[in-house]
Nucleic acid binder design. Structure first.
Length: 263
DNA sequence: TCAAATGTTTGATC
DNA sequence: GGATCAAACATTTG
């Protein structure tokens, strides 16, 4: 599923193709994904010049000369460059350099045009790769509840999803149910450094392809081969050999080592 | 054949 | 506001 490392990989693999290019034509097929009038969106994009591509958390922003094209991949969204449109293509955007296809099986993602970004975007938390420890710790201390659901809360921190939450908690040896209020500064520091290092390593491996994630060239990532706990229930912990356990926290499958990660 | 599971965000409710 | 939970959806797995 596209989390920060996957979205970063998509942005990197698409940038060179689209920056500075002009949109010649745009076609949308799904009201769910665009959440607004097709024709209006297509009209706004037609003739627009792409100045740049940015990412914050899992959000992608194409900065245009006349506004912003916002893309969120949801669970199964893909931005594909120069491929043929398949069964689940939701948008086809033709540039003077090639074709950008938005494909999304489950349609939890979105692709929207804005003249200016709405206020609601201000609620997003700081990007998980660009947050320093002091800010991380201060924000953590203001929250109550279990650590794992908080890590998944995008208004607390932008970019962490289910896979990386489990992986970074394993690295920091912190139990996913640990209360935020009871977390010492020392453990918070370990959590913060694990956050940064796990995400950076995942980006080096071009993300995790556990189901159908691919980058804009259709290439799978390889970080799934380095997962320590995610999707490994019943298998031995790479650190201590105990069987990895799978429980449900906040309606999400959660994987951890019962021996390494104590409450 | 049907039910459950998958995991991200939004929006309703407490 | 924050915490919690159902819903949006399509496909795969049991």
């Amino acid at each position: 599923m596209p989390e920060l490392p996957e979205v970063e990989t998509v942005v990197r693999s698409i940038s060179a193709h689209v920056i500075g290019r002009t949109i010649l034509h745009a076609e949308f097929f799904s009201p769910l994904v665009t959440r607004s009038d097709f024709k209006k969106t297509a009209q706004a994009l037609c003739g627009a010049i792409i100045r740049g591509v940015r990412r914050r958390g899992k959000q992608i922003f194409f900065d245009l000369d006349n506004g912003i094209l916002y893309v969120h991949l949801g669970m199964t969204g893909k931005l594909l460059w120069n491929t043929t449109a398949g069964k689940h293509a939701r948008a086809i955007i033709s540039l003077d350099s090639g074709t950008l296809i938005y494909d999304d099986i489950r349609q939890f993602g979105r692709m929207e045009f804005f003249d200016n970004l709405p206020q609601s975007f201000d609620r997003a938390g700081p990007d998980a790769l660009n947050i320093g420890f002091e800010e991380f710790y201060n924000r953590l201390k203001r929250r109550k509840g279990q650590i794992k659901p908080l890590l998944l809360n995008q208004s607390f921190l932008s970019g962490v999803g289910n896979i990386y939450a489990d992986e970074l908690l394993f690295k920091a040896r912190i139990h996913p149910r640990t209360s935020t209020q009871r977390m010492s500064k020392k453990r918070a520091a370990l959590l913060h450094s694990s956050l940064i290092s796990v995400l950076q390593l995942a980006i080096l491996h071009r993300g995790s392809s556990v189901s159908d994630y691919v980058d804009s060239a259709g290439e799978r990532g390889s970080f799934q081969n380095l997962h320590n706990v995610y999707g490994r229930a019943g298998q031995p912990c790479p650190r201590c050999g105990a069987a990895i356990r799978r429980i449900v926290i906040g309606q999400r499958g959660t994987h951890y080592c019962p021996r390494c990660q104590r409450v």
